[in-house]
C-alpha cells in the first residue's frame, strides 16, 4: 500500500538517506530501527509526506506522494495519516480531550460530536480520567497515550510514530505500545514505528534496519539481521496484544 523506492535525501553535506527502498502492506506493523543518525526519522518524514526526498519515489496506493505540492501533501496527511512524536506535540493550553478533538474539528466535524469521539478514544486508551487535565498536569505515559488517541481519532489508514516511547520508562512505554499496537490491529490500521528500542521493535511484524542511510537489513522480528535479539520482549505478532 505504501511504497518507497530508492529514496535519497541530504541535509547540506550529510546524506541522511542514500537509496532506501521499502514496501509496507495494508494493516502491517513495521519497525524502522538502526543506530542514532542512521536516517530513521528522515525516512519516516519522507513516507508521511512531511518532507520531499531529492530522488526516488513514495507511493500511496500506487499514487505518487513526493511529487505533490505542499497543499496536496497536507490534505493527504490529514485524510490518511496519524502521527505520534516522542514528546511536545500536544498544545499545552488545551485539555487532553480538546487536544484529541482538534484534528476532528479541523476535519469540519461539529464541536459536540468531536468532543464525544475524543472522549471515547481516551476511554479506549485508559486515559478517561485525564480528559479534562492540561498536558502539563499529566505524566509522560499519559501524555503519549493522549497523543496516540489524537493520531487514531481521525481513523487514519497509516499511523506513523517516531520514538513514541523514547521519553518513557519501560513500564509506561509498554503500556503505550500495548494500546497503540492493540488498537492498530483491531482497526487494521497500518503502523510505522521508528525506534531504537528492541522491545518496541518486537511488537512489529517486520523490521527495517537502517545504517548510514541505507537499508542494512529487513527481517521478521526475532531473526533480525542487525543482531538485535528480541528476547525479553513481549511476544510479537497479532494476537499477543489486545
Amino acid at each position: 500500500m505504501l511504497e518507497a523506492r530508492a529514496l535519497r535525501k541530504a541535509f547540506g553535506r550529510t546524506t541522511a538517506l542514500d537509496g532506501v527502498s521499502a514496501e509496507i502492506g495494508e494493516g502491517e506493523i513495521i519497525a524502522i530501527t538502526g543506530p542514532s543518525g542512521s536516517g530513521k526519522s528522515t525516512l519516516l518524514h519522507c513516507l508521511a509526506g512531511i518532507i520531499r526526498p531529492e530522488a526516488g519515489e513514495v507511493r500511496l496506493d500506487g499514487r505518487r506522494v513526493d511529487t505533490l505540492d505542499e497543499d496536496d501533501r497536507t490534505r493527504l496527511r490529514r485524510e490518511n495519516f496519524g502521527i505520534v512524536f516522542q514528546f511536545g506535540q500536544l498544545v499545552p493550553e488545551l485539555s487532553a480531550v480538546e487536544n484529541v478533538a482538534l484534528p476532528l474539528l479541523f476535519n469540519r466535524h461539529g464541536r459536540r460530536e468531536s468532543l464525544r469521539t475524543a472522549r471515547s478514544w481516551l476511554e479506549r486508551l485508559d486515559t478517561a480520567d485525564c480528559a479534562d487535565h492540561l498536558p502539563g498536569e499529566l505524566s509522560g505515559g499519559q501524555l503519549q497515550r493522549v497523543a496516540v488517541a489524537r493520531a487514531l481519532a481521525v481513523g487514519p489508514r497509516v499511523v506513523f510514530a517516531d520514538e513514541p516511547t523514547g521519553a518513557l520508562d519501560s513500564l509506561a512505554g509498554e503500556q503505550v505500545m500495548d494500546t497503540l499496537v492493540g488498537t492498530a490491529r483491531e482497526s487494521r490500521t497500518t503502523l510505522v514505528i521508528v525506534t531504537h528500542d528492541n522491545r518496541v521493535a518486537a511488537y512489529a511484524d517486520r523490521e527495517i534496519v537502517l545504517r548510514d542511510g541505507t537499508v542494512a537489513g529487513a527481517s521478521t522480528v526475532g531473526t533480525s539481521t542487525a543482531g538485535a535479539p528480541a528476547a525479553g520482549a513481549p511476544a510479537a505478532g497479532g494476537e499477543a496484544t489486545t
Binding site: 508521511a48 512531511i50 505542499e70 497543499d71 497536507t74 490534505r75 493527504l76 496527511r77 490529514r78 485524510e79 495519516f81 496519524g82 502521527i83 512524536f85 511536545g88 506535540q89 500536544l90 498544545v91 499545552p92 482538534l102 484534528p103 479541523f106 493520531a151
Partner: peptide, 18 residues
C-alpha cells in the same frame, strides 16, 4: 513557545493557513 506543538499539527495535516 508553541513551535513544537504547531509543527506537530502541521505534520499531521493542519494547513499552515489554518
Amino acid at each position: 513557545d508553541h513551535r513544537r506543538s504547531f509543527a506537530a499539527l502541521a505534520a499531521s495535516g493542519v494547513p499552515a493557513t489554518a
